[in-house]
Amino acid sequence: MILLKYLKEEDYETISKVLFTGLDFAGKSSIILTLKREFAQIGDATPTQGSQKRMFDFLGRQISEWDLGGQRKYRISYLKRPNDYFANTNVAIYVIDIQDETRFDESIDYLHKVIKKFEELEISPFVHIFFHKYDPTIVQYHDNQYENIVENLKEQIKEKISYKNIDFHKTSIFDISSIIKSMSSIFLSLVPKTVLIDTTLQEFVEKTNSKGIIIVDDNSLMISSYFIDDEVKELAKDSIPYFLSLNDSFEKVDVESLGDSQNSDKTTVIQKNDNYFIFSKIDLNKDAPPYYLLLVKDTPEYDKKNIQSISTLFGEILY
């Protein structure tokens, strides 16, 4: 396939730098912990000291993730030494705590200074602004208050900052799918076109008489999906966090009680209303990180050979 050849010839080894920044207590680290499904650590999280970095693989591309502590003393240091912190940034994720109105001006001012440093460095990374702590319960019981806050913040940012590469997101650790959807779209922008993967999933859904399919990686990031309608699409995407957490629990049991998780069944089937969710871990090769497949069908029956087939095709595209 020409497109497959194109994908394999792309420079996957290029490192993409993703920068998390914003004020202290905005929730930057909690977003990262949510993606890693380390929920127990969120409650004990303290403001990040300096900068924290990690490397991980996303669709064959190396991601360098920087979490910059937002305390004032660190912010001053970042701005004084922009080459050490902001240089080579491909994507910046700026987090604003929408529940702390007393710091809105301070947050917008720091955002302005960060973007100025990007311009001084002659780089123009896409800046994704997360209006964070947009918690469902709070939003529900305050009518349109928080929606109005978000809209006002957007207007203030647009008035103060002239920068074309800005996008806005509403996120909450209590609505995990909001974080997964936003982060997935951001990371997918860093890799070559996924047309072949999308086409492969569509063909798979049609062949297996399914309603839809999602593939996610071990960082909770959605790689690709295909659904026959929007209702099933939203239901499946909202369900992904729970299947991943369930899988984490099962894997712990496998390791502790069985000693060898490779011999256990990697597929889980759960019914909700008229839909059957078939969740399976897929191993592409020994060096690849794990991926997960969520299939939605009318019936609980599935063919293991079909899942193996899509795993093989997916592995050929990526590796």
Rank of each mutant, 00 (worst) to 15 (best):
P136Y: 05
K286D: 11
V269R: 00
K80S: 15
D109N: 10
Y226L: 07
G69C: 04
T102V: 06
K207A: 14
E13W: 01
N88F: 11
G60W: 10
I186K: 10
M1V: 12
K117L: 10
Q41H: 12
K17W: 07
F243R: 01
L294E: 03
F58E: 02
S264A: 11
T46H: 10
K233N: 07
Y319K: 11
K237P: 00
E301W: 03
E119C: 03
V269H: 01
K211I: 00
I278R: 01
E65S: 12
S178M: 11
Q52I: 15
T200F: 08
Q99A: 04
K154N: 08
A87Y: 02
Y94D: 12
D254A: 07
I96W: 08
S51K: 10
I180W: 06
Y141T: 12
I93A: 06
K281A: 01
V255H: 04
D274G: 00
E301N: 09
L59A: 08
K286I: 09
L23M: 11
I214Q: 09
E256W: 06
T137L: 09
H132Q: 09
N247K: 00
I186P: 04
N148C: 02
S264Q: 13
L68Q: 08
R61I: 04
A26T: 11
Y94C: 07
K80E: 15
F25H: 12
T46E: 13
I240G: 02
D283Q: 10
Y85Q: 06
D57Q: 15
G259Q: 01
L23S: 05
F126M: 08
Y94L: 09
G315I: 04
I149D: 04
I2P: 08
F86Y: 15
Y242F: 00
T137Q: 06
D283E: 14
A26N: 13
L68R: 07
F118W: 14
L188G: 08
F314I: 14
Q145W: 01
N306W: 07
D57N: 15
K207N: 12
K207I: 12
E316I: 12
D248K: 00
D217E: 08
F39K: 14
F204T: 11
S245H: 03
K8L: 15
I310H: 05
S261A: 15
